[in-house]
């Protein structure tokens, strides 16, 4: 003999049905925001350090980036321990200078100041504004760059100059030569639609 459900039992079932509906909505019906989000973790970042007669470049190929056009957010970070200058000892000196044990990431989180058109062909000049953090110091910066939509994904290229003193980074010395305060930063990353 089947027992009739009580009022409380009906409420529980209603809540469970609501819960299932929520998960189905999340899993099966991607919101518009996800459809316009782009992501990658194999971007290229490099910096150029000027030392008299001794310029050198440091690079990393594990730049992680995400752009959400619906939410208008731009988010990038790189593990500074992955920077490679071509000389192991210089890498170690750089990690000491940046105190990567305490401040492992260089990161940016901001918004697009320029409207972009995903349907447009060719590079689109853009500007972003947001918080850039390195060495535990955060400053609001504006960075010019360009976006290119293609079948491969969304490519972003940008460059700007970082002043070491702005982030309380003591310029290292190579013997008696001091590394320049200005560091030219360049990023290049191909984002793909976020699943």
């Amino acid at each position: 003999m089947t027992e009739l459900p009580t009022t409380d039992g009906l409420r529980v079932r209603w809540y469970l049905a609501l819960l299932v509906a929520a998960w189905v909505w999340i899993i099966l019906i991607p919101p518009q925001a996800e459809a316009q989000a782009w992501y990658a973790e194999t971007g290229h970042v490099e910096f150029l350090s000027n030392v008299p007669l001794h310029d050198f470049i440091g690079t990393s190929d594990v730049l992680t980036g995400r752009i959400d056009l619906a939410e208008n957010t731009v988010d990038f970070f790189v593990d500074l321990n992955t920077l490679d200058t071509g000389i192991g000892k210089r890498d170690k000196d750089m990690r000491k200078t940046l105190e990567t044990d305490d401040y492992p990431f260089a990161e940016f989180f901001g918004t697009l100041l320029t409207a972009v058109d995903p349907a447009a062909e060719g590079p689109q000049p853009v500007e972003v504004e947001g918080d850039f953090t390195i060495h535990g110091i955060t400053r609001t910066i504006q960075v010019p760059g360009q976006l290119t939509f293609s079948e491969e994904g969304l490519r972003i290229e940008a460059s700007w100059t970082l002043l070491l003193e702005d982030y309380e980074i003591q310029p290292p010395r190579l013997l008696f030569l001091k590394v320049d305060e200005e560091q030219a930063i360049t990023i290049d990353i191909l984002l793909t639609p976020e699943s």
Binding site: W23, T73, D79
Partner: peptide, 19 residues
Amino acid sequence: ALVTVSSASAQMQRTRSAQ
């Protein structure tokens, strides 16, 4: 569930590289 959806647009989790 709602928080999961809304957090998709928040800042990414910073994770250290395997290298």
